[in-house]
Design a protein around this nucleic acid. Sequence first.
DNA 1: TATGAATGAGGTTTCATTCAT
DNA 2: GATGAATGAAACCTCATTCAT
Lengths: 206, 206, 206, 206
Amino acid sequence: MSKKGKGERTRERILEAAAEEFASRGFYETKTIDILSKVGLTQPALYKHFPNKQSIYCELVDGLHVKFRRLIETARLGIGLTDDDVSAGAKEAVIHVFNLLFENPNVTRIAFFMDQNAENLKLELVKLIQKNIQSEQEMGYIRSDISAEIAAVCLVGMIERLTLEFLLPGKKSPESLADDVFGIFAPAMINKGSEPNPIDIIKHLE
Amino acid sequence: MSKKGKGERTRERILEAAAEEFASRGFYETKTIDILSKVGLTQPALYKHFPNKQSIYCELVDGLHVKFRRLIETARLGIGLTDDDVSAGAKEAVIHVFNLLFENPNVTRIAFFMDQNAENLKLELVKLIQKNIQSEQEMGYIRSDISAEIAAVCLVGMIERLTLEFLLPGKKSPESLADDVFGIFAPAMINKGSEPNPIDIIKHLE
Amino acid sequence: MSKKGKGERTRERILEAAAEEFASRGFYETKTIDILSKVGLTQPALYKHFPNKQSIYCELVDGLHVKFRRLIETARLGIGLTDDDVSAGAKEAVIHVFNLLFENPNVTRIAFFMDQNAENLKLELVKLIQKNIQSEQEMGYIRSDISAEIAAVCLVGMIERLTLEFLLPGKKSPESLADDVFGIFAPAMINKGSEPNPIDIIKHLE
Amino acid sequence: MSKKGKGERTRERILEAAAEEFASRGFYETKTIDILSKVGLTQPALYKHFPNKQSIYCELVDGLHVKFRRLIETARLGIGLTDDDVSAGAKEAVIHVFNLLFENPNVTRIAFFMDQNAENLKLELVKLIQKNIQSEQEMGYIRSDISAEIAAVCLVGMIERLTLEFLLPGKKSPESLADDVFGIFAPAMINKGSEPNPIDIIKHLE
DNA sequence: TATGAATGAGGTTTCATTCAT
DNA sequence: GATGAATGAAACCTCATTCAT
């Protein structure tokens, strides 16, 4: 009666168990038998569903990486909004990031923190944020005396560590963490005492 | 002339090669033979100097962890200075951290970024910073509407990522990075729009 | 209308597919699933019809081996004929052999060329031929300066290789190959330059 | 003191044991542990010397195949001799073949009788012999009413079976077997009653 | 001090084979 | 009669690690 065949469900149970094991022990210390005994299966069952241990790992990692890249892409396309939307949109984007990372904490641990390739992912995120910051700097909304790259890198660093210490353990919600991040990041970026760059204002009025 | 015997030198060459390999491939993908062929030795030589592969890894990791904890301890003891010292001291402390992380990039990669235990280390750093922030919040020097813990976590996150992207690749110096960090973190913490706490002002004027 | 039930037909399709696979890949490189996918069945179906993989192989091999031994037995009983019959009968026998080997080329490949037990079969054939040759040698019809055993072995060798190179690929018919074999073997056996044994001549004139 | 290092000798002992096992059980029924227990070693020792089980097999097979092809090549270059040399040379060549096959009976069993690729080898031998026969047919030395190809195939068939039944078990020497082969093959080929073709004679006198 | 040669131990993987439906 | 899903068993291979020199 169930839409999914038993095989499909088994496959998913393997993936889930693998995620738990990989997240807590790492790839190498996770033995296939650890995964299987968790699911209550024996070795050949695993190889009915996956060609090898590595492929389970990859499926988990790639899954998140794809979603993550898609999120970045979506955010990139959303660039170029009006005033309030800009900062509101930024926070919204960060919430999306936290949401995604919170979807499956085990997978996030693996794909976003343990996997070597995660660095590339973070670099892409940095690039996206950097571009946004630069736009806003050109518009004079935020300080221009700070390197957009440095700022972006810092923002990503904050997101990372907040994810590890508050999001994954379930201590804080994505929204709340986004507030926290911008509670620090926004004030740091604000064009405080200095007059806004007149040219930027003109640009903005057009 | 050299104080160190040949054996001691060999031991160090092994450690160094191991650091390179561990840093680039990780513990499990680094085979003892990879390390040895890099040094031009054969397997038994390794076991003359170390009880096993794990011990090489531990020696590298523990070395940095000890130094790191010592740094934190020193910083902790240095708490409770006068105003200028406070922020100057904070930046100084961050420089020390960057300096330590820059001492041996390979080891840093291993002990500070790959090793599971690094989380504890970072947690200790967070605690230290959190305490400092709390002190300053109590003194009214900085915003009190931000959780000291969150702020500390964010600061550590920034340090981490800046280390990975600028310090380890040699793109920026410890001092410059400390400037960058405080260029963002300090303004974010400043008690701006709100009326400053009168008591704090008095303190500050002294 | 068909005498055979569906099960029986399935059984035969399995045998046939197995013969193809065994013949082209050998026993070990043929996986049960290869056979089954060829027939469009799944694994349990196989075990409804055969106790195991080996038994399929045996059934194929034994089938030919039994037929072959029966052929040899028939030939053995037919020994002791008059002159013309002798050589004519010999060629007839070889045609029978080729016919049998041509009946199912795949099975022949397996049972006559790949199976270790085939050696015994060939040995039996050698023994039979050797006896025939000896009889004829005693009768003086053919050279006595050649070991009957050697001659028999050679004849079997020819049959084997001709089978592989011409019969199984369908390049030559059993009859034509029998002609070829005797085109070489008969002249080789003939009592040519030497004076024929007078006694033999007398026998021959009868 | 010995020229060969211990490792090299071990390698050879493995090869030798493998040849025995492969020859008697076949590739798949030979477990690496069978080979190793014969040599008194454990698994890793094998993999110090060979990348895998297959490579041991290949080294054995390729070794003989190369020698065999070299032999054929040498024979090919030796074509085109005078009268007596022709048949003498042919026998000589067959002796070389038998000698090679006798050098290492186990390897011969594997590379010349069990290995699938052996068929190609035999085909090459057939081609060589066929050419020689054709030359002699053109010169009128031997019967032209027999297909050179058929004759060559038969000759190879004889060699094969004689090898299996007499050479490998050590029942007959290469020379003796060559005599046997030509005792049958030469008379079969001889241009008995018929006058030699005049044109061929002229050709031969040139 | 360093090495050539060997090992113990254990993991991944691959089959043929079966159970419950 | 046939199947989806699972298993038992065993082979290959790869390590870190050690022995004897």
